[in-house]
Write a protein that binds this DNA or RNA. Structure first.
Lengths: 270, 270
DNA sequence: GAGCATAGAGTGGTCATACCAATTGTGGTT
DNA sequence: AACCACAATTGGTATGACCACTCTATGCTC
């Protein structure tokens, strides 16, 4: 208990500037939090197509006068958009609509996991449903252009059987390639979000790899099923592979999920 | 274009207070954005179990002195956490860790959809994969306690065949109940997030309902399959149901996805 | 004239301070 | 005992200022 602000003080009437308008209710719209006005404003611009990925937003000081709000309020709104991954700010340069492939940050899910005590199995189960579905779709479509990346990572896996570190990298990328091959950006984003949470096995589970050869073979069967446009087989192979991965990971109690505090440095930092 | 700050001014050396420390690099940790320090701090407290859902955070002014940061910076960090749905602030009361069932805001996904032009079919496809998976899990488990809510909403549907408005409400809740019956909070959260994006059909698609009876029957078959612990049938029925819904919705071009600007008022407002 | 260094404007990040608005708990009044 | 008014607490917004970084355009050098 600090002892501040104890005196009766003297903040009575008319000590300083008496003239600032008391926050005008903006034109017609119901008076939601002023900061959300910024979010809404940007949202509308995006919906209208006036703002596209990579575009630069007006400077904060400009937005402030445009919307009739103070800069801190503008910053509060932009902070929200940044947290949602909609925009990215670069000091000295400006604020930009996030470019690159559609991504959903893993932060919110990670916090949810920490707060509600999600088990690794629960997260893995969600991953299984998503990735099995993605593999099925990829097989149904079987788009050649999306097949190549998978094949490349597959080759990389067989080429690095002796180097668990490098192997895992190809492993992760293979699964991302499968998600991409679903040709559905929503599923792709969801897969990446959930996968992120379960990929802290990297130094523990795969390090002293016991059967990378076996793992690579499973990936090859998944690839072949997709290439052969056999959805049912693709689903089955992916399901079997993930189930085995889950058990392997459960066996070694070392592996942990990515915690929120770790994400702060990876997602936001750098 | 205002005319401020035009004169050469005089901000040369040592005009005013020369003594404020230039942002001390906090103890040991790499110097990430100061605002992220707040996010990290709260994340650590959550991981340690010191902060649980419903708990109240220290006042902003207290956090400021605790972390050695200014209040605006603290607010920036809290804004990020609020955007991720981790905390909720109530003016005059304080800031609290979000309570209630695990939820993943639809905002980020909605923005992604608007920015990258996701089609309704793509979102629906993701929904199908998730809900079919959820139905399968629900059938595998078949927990009686989670069966009741589904049955109730089902009854509600049959009871409101003449009132499309009320019917849709039960419809939505039934699907949420199925997701809950998966007994997997991750899947439940994902289902809700994706479903939200596609539920603006409410006034258009179902309004002048053509065959609510048929729809209710499909839901009943889904329920029965889950009750009978028949995963394969549950998956098939859910898949058929959603596919039919998708076609019905595609037929009427009126239905739209929830846009980001709409979400600003529903998620944040009120 | 071409290339390169540099100064300056522009922009996001942080800070300090103040006041407003809503909530809540407390103490006095009825 | 119930109710109401007041004051402290706390989040929301506003000003104004300065710092750190980026980018560009100017002007200098070669």
């Amino acid at each position: 208990m600090t002892e501040r602000g104890r005196r009766p003080v003297a903040r009575k009437a008319g000590t300083s500037l008496p003239s600032r308008p008391p926050r005008r209710t903006r034109g017609g719209s119901l008076d939601l939090q002023a900061a959300d006005e910024v979010v809404r404003h940007v949202a509308v611009l995006i919906e209208k197509g006036r703002l596209r990925p990579g575009d630069r937003l007006p400077a904060e000081r400009e937005l402030a006068v445009e919307l009739g709000l103070s800069r801190p309020t503008i910053r509060a709104g932009l902070q929200t958009l940044a947290a949602m991954g909609v925009i990215e700010s670069r000091r000295g340069a400006g604020t930009f609509i996030t470019a690159g492939p559609p991504r959903l940050g893993a932060g919110p899910l990670s916090f949810l996991a920490a707060l509600h005590g999600f088990t690794r199995d629960e997260v893995f189960e969600a991953r299984l449903i998503l990735e099995v579905g993605a593999a099925g779709l990829a097989a149904e479509r079987g788009l050649p252009a999306l097949l190549a990346p998978m094949a490349e990572e597959l080759a990389g896996m067989f080429a690095t059987l002796e180097d668990p570190q490098a192997y895992l990298l190809h492993d992760v990328r293979f699964h991302q390639a499968v998600a991409a091959a679903s040709a559905n950006p929503v599923i792709q984003a969801l897969v990446e979000m959930v996968s992120t949470l379960v990929y802290e096995e990297r130094r523990s589970s795969v390090q002293r790899a016991h059967d990378l050869k076996e793992s690579a073979e499973m990936h090859r069967r998944i690839y072949q099923a997709i290439r052969d446009k056999d959805p049912q087989r693709a689903r089955a192979e992916m399901s079997r592979h993930l189930e085995m991965t889950r058990q392997a990971q459960a066996a070694e109690e070392m592996s942990q999920m990515v915690t929120p505090s770790q994400l702060v440095e990876s997602e936001f930092g750098s």
